[in-house]
């Protein structure tokens, strides 16, 4: 039964890792706008969009 201790700590650790990733995602603004990325994907003019510099 003691194996449960290992399982719990493993699951908590995993959860903490995901929580950390989630926090990073929030900080990077991934949750600020849930609609435009879906629409941005549909823009089909590689000529115009590919030249755009996103990192400034």
């Amino acid at each position: 039964m003691k194996v449960i201790v290992i399982l719990i700590s493993a699951s908590l650790l995993l959860a903490l890792i995901f929580l950390g990733l989630f926090f990073t995602a929030v900080r990077k603004g991934q949750f600020d706008d849930l609609e435009s990325p879906a629409m941005r994907m549909l823009n089909d003019k590689p000529g115009l969009t590919s030249k755009r510099k996103l990192n400034n």
């Binding site: 549909l42 823009n43 003019k45 115009l48 969009t49 030249k51 755009r52």
Partner: peptide, 12 residues
């Protein structure tokens, strides 16, 4: 979605 496209193409 065109609105997004147009505005985001302002640099062009």
């Amino acid at each position: 979605s065109s609105c997004i496209e147009l505005l985001e193409d302002l640099p062009e």
